Simulated assay, not measured.
Amino acid sequence: MNSIIEKEKKLNQALSELKNLDLSSPDLKNNIDNLSSQKTQLEIEKSQLEYKYKSLLEEHTNLTKKIEEIQNKEKLEQKKQIEFSEKIDELNQETDTLLEEIDKWQM
């Protein structure tokens, strides 16, 4: 309960200080103008960074797709090579069998 009363006192004190603030001070006006221009500059930079981020994100997505395509092509190529090797093995076995048959007939 005590902390609520203390917070209320601090809030009232801050409000009274804000009421007593002289906004016509040239230094204060210059500071506000400077802060405003800095805010504008930061907003411009933020927008540029967001644009660059979106561009990089798109590029990343495109590169990821290309990598997946390349990996799929590699897998397909490996599969074809395995199938080709199996066919060669089959042909070798058939050739061996035929040679054995020829040898039998020649004897």
Results as ranks from 00 to 15, higher is better:
2 N>E: 10
3 S>R: 08
3 S>I: 01
6 E>R: 15
7 K>Y: 03
7 K>S: 14
8 E>V: 06
8 E>R: 13
9 K>Y: 01
9 K>G: 00
9 K>L: 02
10 K>I: 09
10 K>A: 15
11 L>T: 09
11 L>Q: 10
12 N>K: 15
12 N>W: 04
12 N>F: 06
15 L>S: 04
15 L>C: 04
17 E>L: 12
17 E>M: 12
18 L>I: 01
21 L>N: 05
21 L>Y: 04
21 L>E: 06
23 L>Y: 10
23 L>T: 03
24 S>K: 14
25 S>G: 11
26 P>D: 05
26 P>H: 04
27 D>S: 14
27 D>F: 13
28 L>D: 03
29 K>R: 10
29 K>M: 07
30 N>I: 01
30 N>S: 06
31 N>L: 15
32 I>G: 02
33 D>H: 10
34 N>G: 07
34 N>T: 10
35 L>P: 00
35 L>V: 00
38 Q>N: 15
38 Q>W: 10
38 Q>P: 02
45 E>F: 01
45 E>Q: 13
46 K>V: 03
47 S>R: 12
48 Q>I: 07
50 E>I: 03
51 Y>N: 04
53 Y>P: 00
53 Y>H: 09
55 S>V: 06
55 S>Q: 11
55 S>G: 01
56 L>A: 08
58 E>G: 00
64 T>K: 15
66 K>I: 02
66 K>S: 07
68 E>V: 06
71 Q>T: 11
71 Q>E: 15
74 E>D: 10
75 K>W: 01
80 K>E: 03
80 K>N: 02
80 K>L: 09
81 Q>C: 03
82 I>P: 05
83 E>W: 10
83 E>N: 15
84 F>M: 08
86 E>P: 05
89 D>K: 14
89 D>H: 10
90 E>L: 02
90 E>Q: 09
92 N>W: 06
95 T>Y: 07
97 T>V: 04
98 L>W: 02
100 E>L: 06
105 W>E: 13
106 Q>G: 01
